[in-house]
């Protein structure tokens, strides 16, 4: 039951995206659609450009001086590299969760409240507490931390920290959440919790996840894109990509011969 791109309007579209670090050509002519309310997994051997591509989607690469991006990336049809686009607004709509949990050196409450606070999303203290509670709840962390919201976030375990970072991201109510290998520093139990969370979150958000684990991609994603040496080799429904890959490179990677 392959749904062709014409039947579902993609949330994000990338056309002819190239990325250069100084002279190194890190990403070559990538075309990719990301559909709404799905989990799209980006896989491939390390250094293949999957993280680079993810960071193009909320213009995180702008932080790197030597990085140059060209091509066309659109969010709901709007060019996100248009000079008129405000990065604040873009990143509020496209949230991000990083490889290593990076809670701010603040309390648990203040970590989650930070995004809503800077964007002015809560009109009162009560409303802010409500946002914090519901975000923590959706991130599956509420029960564990509800009695110590004022404790420093750095005291949480790795898995809790990462769920806190997810709560922090969804508190801003973004449309898309980018996850850059969110489980790479976590143990299997914490990983399972986050994978389950992703499944729930896709009801409300569009999720793009970079992962080095093919099993994880197979478990959580509906669509999978395989990158290799800066090329987007293959993209399709996760089942198809894993069972009937078109490109021989995809097949080699999946069967463990490269990467």
């Amino acid at each position: 039951m392959d749904m062709s791109p014409s039947t579902i309007r993609p949330k994000l579209t990338a056309r002819g995206v190239n990325v250069f670090y100084d002279d190194a050509h890190a990403l070559k002519q990538v075309d990719l659609d990301i559909r709404a309310h799905e989990v799209t997994a980006l896989i491939g051997p390390s250094g293949c450009g999957k993280s680079t591509f993810l960071r193009c989607l909320n213009r995180m690469n702008d932080l790197i001086d030597i990085c140059r991006v060209d091509g066309d990336i659109r969010l709901d049809g709007e060019d996100i590299y248009d000079p008129a686009v405000d990065l604040v607004y873009l990143r509020a709509r496209i949230g991000m969760v990083f490889q290593k949990p990076n809670p701010f050196p603040k309390s648990i409450h203040d970590n989650v409240a930070y995004g809503p606070k800077i964007h002015g999303l809560a009109r009162s203290r009560a409303e802010m507490d409500e946002i914090v509670a519901s975000s923590l709840e959706r991130a599956g962390l509420w029960e564990e931390v509800k009695d110590r919201l004022d404790a420093p976030a750095t005291g949480l375990s790795g898995g809790q920290q990462q769920r806190l970072c997810i709560a922090r991201a969804i508190a801003v109510r973004p449309e898309v959440i980018l996850m850059d290998e969110p489980c790479s520093s976590l143990d299997p139990i914490a990983t399972a919790r986050i994978e389950a969370l992703m499944d729930e979150l896709k009801q409300n958000f569009t999720i793009v996840i970079v992962t080095h684990s093919m099993q994880q991609a197979a478990r959580v994603s509906q669509r999978t894109a395989f990158f290799h040496l800066g090329d987007l080799v293959e993209v399709g429904d996760t089942d198809t990509v894993f069972t009937q890959p078109v490109d021989p490179r995809t097949e080699s990677y999946i069967s463990g011969r490269i990467g």
């Binding site: 509020a92 964007h119 002015g120 999303l121």
Partner: peptide
């Protein structure tokens, strides 16, 4: 698990200037 809030985009846009 429902979020009673409006979509935040308007508020954010208003805060930008």
């Amino acid at each position: 698990m429902t979020d009673p809030r409006q979509s935040p985009t308007e508020t954010i846009l208003a805060s930008l200037p």
